[in-house]
């Protein structure tokens, strides 16, 4: 190997390792900053303390965890059917040109900043929801907008999974005299379920990771929500609201909540990537 080839290999590999190490660096810093709280307070207190009053030493994360799960799972419940339907639409129902434009719009939707979704939700959607009672800034509004935001992930990955199905399956089903709806329901969606499942899971990680739209729409009251129309505060929103002035244990607890988010999301991502195995289906 010539000298320039050798130095290319050394430099590129070193930088590749550096890129890969960033994720470990992030994890390391979260652990480092969380350590004081985890050591002094212990994990249990985040679940057993009576409430979230960081200035008087009460650090219950339960209300935030519940709100995070509620908005994330709720938004997936909205995005999954719509996203899958959208992919099915582009493949089986829309005329060719419409399908192309539909895909383009979905990609556009994927690129809209969360803060713009938040602004629209705040000014347009929240007043509409307020007619049901309250201020309109509640978990329902946040969940609906979040669902819209993560929809492209479901739609684009389902689209790809459907596109990678062998054509012969669909032709074979049609040759058996199956109708379109039963081909879709009995052949296409079961056949593409792994890809669609991965899309839904990735959408869940997006929802868990989203901050701005929820911060602007959920009302941010720290309480265990008792209905969809009650306001709530997610872990992400809590960090964004309090990191600016938090110090000592309070700051450390915020890093603990960040660590929780990162671990949950990473487990899902690694799970998808192992299930995907060595195949390069989505690359």
């Amino acid at each position: 190997m010539s000298r320039s080839d050798l130095s290319l290999r050394i430099i590129s590999r070193t930088l590749a390792i550096l890129s890969a190490a960033i994720v470990l660096l992030i994890l390391g810093f979260l652990v480092r900053e969380s350590a004081p709280a985890l050591q002094e307070l212990g994990l249990a207190r985040f679940f057993t303390d009576p409430g979230w009053h960081p200035l008087s030493g009460q650090f219950s994360l339960v209300p935030m965890i519940v709100a995070t799960l509620a908005t994330s799972l709720g938004s997936v419940a909205i995005a999954a059917p719509l996203g899958i339907a959208s992919a099915v639409f582009a493949h089986f129902y829309a005329p060719r040109t419409l399908a192309i434009w539909h895909r383009r719009l979905i990609e556009l939707l994927a690129g809209i900043p969360s803060v713009v979704f938040g602004l629209w939700g705040l000014v347009v959607l929240a007043p509409l929801v307020a007619r049901l009672g309250g201020s309109g800034q509640n978990l329902f509004t946040a969940t609906a907008v979040l669902g819209l935001m993560i929809l492209p992930t479901v739609a684009l990955l389902s689209d790809a999974a459907i596109a990678s199905l062998p054509r012969a399956w669909i032709q074979g089903a049609a040759a058996l005299g199956m109708q379109r709806w039963s081909i879709v329901g009995k052949v296409v969606i079961p056949g593409a379920r792994r890809g669609i499942g991965a899309g839904v899971l990735l959408a869940l990680t997006r929802a868990l990771g989203e901050t701005m739209a929820v911060l602007m729409l959920a009302g941010n009251v720290v309480q265990v929500p008792n209905s969809l129309l009650s306001p709530g505060r997610t872990l992400n929103a809590n960090i964004a609201l309090e990191l600016g002035y938090a110090s000592t244990f309070h700051r450390s607890v915020l890093f603990v909540s960040g660590l929780m988010l990162m671990l949950v999301v990473s487990v899902i991502v690694v799970g998808i990537s192992y299930r995907r195995g060595a195949s390069d289906e989505w690359r």
Binding site: L25, I26, V265
Partner: peptide
Amino acid sequence: VRRCLDVLAGVPSIVFGLFGNAF
């Protein structure tokens, strides 16, 4: 390396904020 990058791609943006702030 790809697996690390997949995880990095999934990291919530507020966590990037925490990391950037601390580091």
